[in-house]
Amino acid sequence: MLARAGLAPALPLVTPAPRVWFNPELESARFLVPGLIGMLLMISSVVATALSIVREKERETIEQLMVSPLRSEELVLGKTLPYLLIGLATMALILLLGWQLFGVVVRGSWLLLGLATVLFLFAGLGLGVLISALTRSQQVAFQVAIIASLLPAIILSGLIFPIRNMPLPIQGLSLLVAPRYFIEILRGVILKDTAFVELWPNFAALLALGAAYNLLAAHKMKQGL
């Protein structure tokens, strides 16, 4: 038997020799932590500002704001800026935890990370203010804020389910989900040290979304004035 097998020619088998980059043990925590950061920041930023203006409307203190010499853009900025600082502090804290608990270290540029966080918070907070400007009661604002942030940030952002595999209309919808871009940047910068040249479309999308949300909110406020 052995002799016969020895006589047989060697089989021309092709074997792939895989080498895994960025995450050699294929550990899912390393993949999920950047995504979870995006989710947490999205929810905290939208929740932070979603009630800001509608509360003034319900308490009827909005008139006082209206008669003040504040312009609507200033009002929107004033409502978001304090939370921007809180968001940045949250980000730092989460990164520290991710490093301590899961060994996720930032391989790329801290500057890029900071820039992405500011842009993302700008978009998230702007969405919150926009919701607040559009609604008339805190209850409705709360509903809309959760609908717009919680589940999209988990399901449509690519955090768990790959966007590439979704049906096309849903992929189109996910273009409006800010965490999608943020999570892509976070994964690139934290895990792979990806450069700005590769990531700039995501930065541009975040900036565009943020500008759109904030301008719409300001516009809506002006109508109210």
């Binding site: 021309p12 074997t15 980059w21 960025f22 995450n23 790959p162």
Partner: peptide
């Protein structure tokens, strides 16, 4: 040439492991 000579051949695969599930 390896395959013509009926010998095993190896190819190298670089895998993006950042998305662990995808990589696997």
């Amino acid at each position: 040439r390896q395959l013509v000579r009926r010998a095993p051949a190896t190819v190298q695969a670089l895998v993006d492991g950042a998305d662990s599930n995808f990589g696997m």
